[in-house]
Design a protein around this nucleic acid. Structure first.
Length: 479
DNA sequence: AAAAAAT
C-alpha cells in the first residue's frame, strides 16, 4: 500500500549510489541508527570552496536518494539530511537540546516529558546552527505543532520588538489553536508577545507590529507584509507552514503562501509540516524549499488501525439523514464531528437535526469570525457534543473528546475524484494520540460508493458495512 | 467545493 512516491528505477539508484561513493561520502557516514534514522557521523568543520562544491553535488545526489529505496523504508522514521558534514542525531530528552531555561520550563508546564518520535528527529535538525530548512511528514496527533513551536521559540529574541517568526495556518480556527500552543509554551518569556494575523483583526494604519511572533492565515498575513506594512518580512528568521501540503497546493493557498515566502530573506529558515503530502505536492515542496532536510514518519496504516471505519448504504440525502438520526444516540456518548461537502449542506443538516430535537453546533466559513471563535470554543469545552461542519475543520483541529467522525458527504476534489488526503485528515480528528476512534461514511449513490471503494483501495483498509436499522450493531460500535 | 483579504 502506502504509495511510494520516492521510488526510482533500480539502475538509477545504483548510479546514484556509485557517484555518491566517488564523492567520498563513505558508507559509514550514512547508516540507520536504532530508530531507523539515517545518521551521519562526520564532524562539522570549516569548508573550502572545493568541499563546498562537493557538498552541493553530494546534496543533489542525496536528494535523489531520498526518492530511492536506498534509505531504509522499513523503519518508522526516515531522515534525510541536507548537509553531509553536520552531525545528525536524535534526542531522547528535551534536556539534550540545551534549550533556554524559560523554554524548557514551558515545555514541561505543558506536560511534555519526553520528545515524541517526530520531535526526537526534527528538533536537533531545526535547532542546528546555522538554521536549516525542513520538510516533515508525520501523521495526525504525533506532536508536529509542539515541534515547530519549539523551533520558533528557541530562535526568537524577545528583546527585539518586531516580528521574527511567522507561522501560516490554512484556517482561522487552526491559527487560534496553534496560537494557544505558542502562548502556553512561551509563557515563561516575560517580554514575548504573539500577534494573530487573522480576519477581523484590524490594526491602525501606519502601525508597526512589536510582537515577536506572528501566527495567521495567508490573506491577512500577505496584507500585513505588503500593502499595510505592519510586518517587515525581511526581518523574519523562521517561517513555518502548518498543513504545508494544502498551503502550497494549486487548489489550496499556493498563491498567497508563495508570495509571502518570496518576501522573506534568503537565509530565513523554512519549516513545512503536514500529515499528508500527495505526490505532486511533495515534489513541489522540494522545489520551493531550498536545500531541504526531510523527515518522514511512515506508517499511516497505524493511524488507520486505531480508527474503525464503517459505511452506511443509503439511496438519497434524506435517507442519509434518517440513518444519521438512528446513529445519534451512539455518537453522542463522547463528541462527534459531521463533515459535509458544502456550506449549504452543513447549514441544512444542522437545521434538520435541530428540528429533530438534537442539539448541534454549526461551523463553516460563511459565518462571522466572532461566531466561529465562539462555536469552536464551546465545542472545545464540551458544551457542544456534535459539530456539523465543512472541510474548514478537516485539518489540525484537536479536540480530545472527539471519538466519532461522520462523513455525511465523502471528501472529493473539484473534479469529483476521491480526496484521500482530506479523508485521512478528517478521520484523524479522532483517534488522537493513540486513542481509539470511529469513522462512519454515508454513501447515497453508485457514484459515492465508487468513491468509497477507491478510498478503501488507496489505504488498503477494509471499510465495513454498518446497518443503522440494526440497533444491536449500533450498540456494538458505540462501545 | 472550501478556504483564504482591510480587495
Amino acid at each position: 500500500m502506502a504509495t511510494d512516491s520516492w521510488a526510482l528505477a533500480v539502475d538509477e539508484q545504483e548510479a546514484a549510489a556509485e557517484s555518491l561513493s566517488n564523492l567520498h561520502l563513505k558508507e559509514e557516514k550514512i547508516k540507520p541508527d536504532a530508530n531507523g534514522a539515517v545518521v551521519k557521523t562526520s564532524a562539522n568543520a570549516e569548508k573550502t570552496d572545493e568541499e563546498e562544491k562537493e557538498d552541493r553535488a553530494a546534496q543533489s545526489l542525496l536528494n535523489k536518494l531520498i526518492r530511492s529505496n536506498l534509505v531504509d523504508n522499513t523503519n518508522q522514521v526516515e531522515v534525510l539530511q541536507r548537509d553531509p558534514n553536520s552531525p545528525l542525531y536524535s534526542v531522547k530528552s528535551f534536556e539534550e537540546l540545551r534549550l533556554k531555561p524559560q523554554l524548557l520550563q514551558g515545555v514541561y508546564a505543558m506536560g511534555f516529558n519526553r520528545p515524541s518520535k517526530i520531535q526526537e528527529n526534527a528538533l536537533p535538525l531545526m535547532l542546528a546552527e546555522p538554521p536549516q530548512n525542513l520538510i516533515a511528514q508525520s501523521q495526525s496527533g504525533t506532536g508536529k505543532t509542539a515541534a515547530f513551536v519549539l523551533a520558533m521559540l528557541s530562535q526568537v529574541e524577545p528583546a527585539n520588538k518586531y516580528p521574527q517568526c511567522l507561522c501560516l495556518s490554512p484556517t482561522y480556527e487552526l491559527a487560534l489553536q496553534t496560537g494557544k500552543v505558542i502562548e502556553q509554551m512561551g509563557k515563561f518569556y516575560p517580554a514575548l508577545k504573539l500577534a494573530y494575523a487573522v480576519r477581523g483583526n484590524k490594526l491602525e494604519r501606519g502601525q508597526k507590529l512589536s510582537e515577536q511572533i506572528v501566527i495567521g492565515t495567508p490573506g491577512t498575513v500577505l496584507d500585513w507584509c505588503s500593502k499595510l506594512k505592519f510586518i517587515d518580512p525581511k526581518k523574519i528568521k523562521v517561517f513555518v507552514l502548518d498543513e504545508a501540503d494544502v498551503m502550497i497546493a494549486t487548489q489550496g493557498h499556493q498563491d498567497q503562501s508563495i508570495r509571502i515566502q518570496r518576501m522573506l530573506p534568503r537565509n530565513c529558515q523554512m519549516l513545512l509540516f503536514s500529515a499528508t503530502f500527495e505526490d505532486s505536492v511533495w515534489k513541489f515542496a522540494q522545489k520551493v524549499v531550498p536545500d531541504p532536510n526531510v523527515i518522514k514518519l511512515k506508517r499511516e496504516e497505524e493511524t488507520l488501525d486505531t480508527i474503525k471505519q464503517y459505511y452506511v448504504l443509503c439511496s438519497s440525502r434524506d435517507e442519509k439523514f434518517q440513518a444519521l438520526c438512528n446513529l445519534y444516540g451512539a455518537i453522542t456518548i463522547a463528541q462527534a464531528m459531521i463533515f459535509c461537502h458544502t456550506r449549504k449542506t452543513a447549514s441544512w443538516l444542522a437545521a434538520e437535526l435541530s428540528k429533530e430535537g438534537h442539539q448541534v453546533a454549526l461551523l463553516s466559513g460563511e459565518m462571522m469570525v466572532e461566531q466561529r471563535a465562539a462555536v469552536i470554543e464551546r465545542f472545545r469545552e464540551g458544551k457542544e457534543k456534535v459539530l456539523v461542519t465543512t472541510n474548514v475543520c478537516a485539518r489540525g483541529i484537536d479536540v480530545e473528546q472527539v471519538s466519532v467522525v461522520i462523513n455525511f458527504d465523502l471528501p472529493v476534489d473539484k473534479d469529483g475524484n476521491p480526496d484521500n488526503e482530506t479523508y485521512l485528515h478528517r478521520i484523524g480528528r479522532t483517534g488522537r494520540f493513540g486513542k481509539r476512534g470511529l469513522a462512519v461514511n454515508m454513501v447515497d449513490s453508485k457514484h459515492s460508493m465508487n468513491i468509497l471503494n477507491r478510498i478503501q483501495e488507496h489505504f488498503n483498509k477494509k471499510i465495513e458495512r454498518l446497518d443503522t436499522d440494526d440497533l444491536d450493531e449500533i450498540e456494538k460500535i458505540a462501545n
